[in-house]
């Protein structure tokens, strides 16, 4: 009898879990791909705003808040707290990795009088593919140009990075009032795929 109820319980609640999974056809996933593209350009915009010392502190801090909100929340990995990391290419040619909040904080305090971070090509998002945990994954690539200048506007350091963002579309109650489960886009780690110095720097 107990076994019978257990089976019934598993059947009812298990079925509920299956039904709650959003149905993602190609068209729907393409829409999420388009949304990811927009959020990547938002991130690029926030990075430009944060780095630009001509902007007010209020605007730069607001841009940090908005940029951080695009990323996954801190989570536990093997008992250790982990937040998404951003790889940064250094002037000496090395690459280091910092937690996302530290990355944006550092961007507020870059040691150049003037900083200009712009995108030099349109971001590209790969097709979403279903992961083992039932979520969907993609890679977004964006192209970032960094220019550090002195107070006269002379270029001191410049480089061009091609960076990859790990994107996860997790199941979430996106429009709860409609009683539907859908996906929510989160950014994970950012890695430097390659760095090309601007000639002469």
């Amino acid at each position: 009898m107990t076994r019978y109820f257990t089976s019934l319980f598993v059947l009812i609640f298990g079925l509920g879990q299956v039904l709650a999974q959003p149905v993602m056809d190609k068209k729907r996933l393409a829409e999420f791909g388009k949304l990811t593209g927009q959020r990547v350009t938002d991130l690029q915009q926030y990075i430009s705003l944060i780095a630009d010392k001509n902007n007010s502190i209020e605007q730069r801090e607001q841009a940090v808040e908005l940029a951080v909100s695009l990323f996954e929340k801190d989570h536990l990995v093997n008992g250790k707290r982990r937040s998404p990391h951003v790889q940064v290419s250094r002037r000496n040619g090395t690459v280091s990795s910092v937690p996302v909040k530290i990355y944006f904080k550092n961007l507020m305090n870059v040691k150049f009088d003037k900083v200009e971070i712009t995108s030099y090509d349109a971001a590209v998002v790969s097709e979403f593919e279903k992961g083992a945990g039932g979520d969907y994954r993609a890679i977004a690539t964006y192209y970032q140009q960094f220019k550090g200048m002195d107070n006269k506007g002379n270029l001191i350091y410049g480089s061009r990075d091609r960076k990859d963002i790990r994107v996860t579309a997790q199941s979430a109650a996106v429009y709860a009032q409609a009683g539907k489960e859908d996906l929510k886009i989160f950014f994970g780690d950012i890695t430097v795929r390659d760095t090309v110095p601007i000639p002469g720097f």
Binding site: R28, E31, F32, K34, L35, Q38, T41, D42, Q45, Y46, L49, Q59, Q62, A63, E65, L66, S69, V174, Y175, A176, D182, L183, K184, I185
Partner: peptide, 21 residues
């Protein structure tokens, strides 16, 4: 079939900062 839902305050803040896009 919307793709994203945002609280109004966050949405407006985002628009203020991404207006050029």
């Amino acid at each position: 079939t919307p793709v994203e839902t945002q609280p109004i305050e966050h949405f407006l803040k985002r628009i203020v900062n991404t207006a050029p896009l």
